[in-house]
């Protein structure tokens, strides 16, 4: 992370807890850059996170109000904070396991009630912090510590799920698409209502290693090759779209 963004970190923070090659430290930088570009005051912000690797993005690193809560309950905690103090700009940063599995009910009901929250879901496709187990976003066939013969269950399409539940802004980008992802975070922060961004991030240590996806740099390259923007995807055949991940904005509140 560049020096100019260090002002957003708590003094004394030297290193993060992230494994070598983890995409979540990239995401941390992108979130701070979006906040910086919008000129938001960290004193007006509250960051709510749950349990898991991504929950450590704001807590304890961001020099702002941070509320590090229970596994899965982020959106419920954030709802309480936002409604009790509507002036707070409330951002939820947590992982796929936290937001979509154990906290999946809060996610869809937060979207249904259209609470004014910006939710960043770092999707690394497994439970990274506990050592790499299957979760609701793990691809079919993937090897994890609890699916040694490959995951038999299809994953959630989180963006479709949250959009169907009523979110007004829904987007998906990978950390390998930094500029669109920063733009998306800015837009989500400026959107009134429930905004949701799924940020795809490689987990080389727990997920990549077991699925022979190569070293961190190779995982990043693979993510770059697999992600196609929605507009381009519309022109591709189903054959060409095989193994591709469609990224972009799926709703921005106007449809």
């Amino acid at each position: 992370m560049v020096r100019e963004l260090e002002k957003y970190l708590r003094p004394g923070i030297g290193v993060t807890t992230y494994c070598p090659g983890c995409g979540e430290a990239i995401l941390m930088g992108l979130i701070l850059r979006a906040i910086d570009e919008l000129g938001l005051n960290m004193d007006d912000m509250l960051f709510v996170s749950g349990i898991g690797c991504a929950a450590w993005i704001p807590s304890p690193y961001f020099n702002a109000d941070t509320l590090h809560t229970l596994h899965g309950r982020t959106i419920a905690f954030a709802t309480g904070a936002k409604l009790a103090n509507p002036k707070l700009k409330v951002m939820v940063i947590s992982g796929d396991g936290d937001l979509a599995d154990i906290g999946g009910n809060h996610l869809i009901h937060g979207a249904r009630r259209n609470i004014d929250l910006t939710v960043i879901c770092a999707n690394n496709m497994n439970y990274g912090m506990t050592g790499g187990q299957v979760c609701s976003t793990t691809p079919v066939g993937a090897v994890t510590m609890t699916t040694h013969q490959g995951n038999p269950f299809p994953p959630f399409d989180l963006c479709r799920l949250v959009r169907a539940a009523g979110a007004v802004y829904v987007a998906r980008y990978a950390v390998t698409q930094p500029l669109p992802l920063i733009r998306s975070i800015k837009k989500a922060l400026q959107t009134e209502g429930f905004s949701f961004i799924e940020a795809l991030t490689p987990c080389p240590v727990q997920f990549g290693r077991r699925n022979k996806l190569g070293k961190p740099a190779e995982m990043l390259k693979s993510l770059m090759a697999r992600c196609v923007m929605k507009e381009r995807a519309e022109k591709l055949s189903p054959e060409e779209l095989k193994d591709k991940i469609i990224t972009g904005e799926f709703t921005d509140g106007r449809d």
Binding site: G104, M145, H148
Partner: peptide, 26 residues
């Protein structure tokens, strides 16, 4: 706790234990 159930998942996957392993969401 995780190593306990990871080990059981492995035993089920490699056929040493005939059981249903349910990786639930909470």
């Amino acid at each position: 706790q995780t190593h306990i159930v990871e080990h059981l998942a492995e035993l089920v996957a490699n056929g040493e234990l005939r059981a249903a392993y349910i990786p639930v969401e909470s």
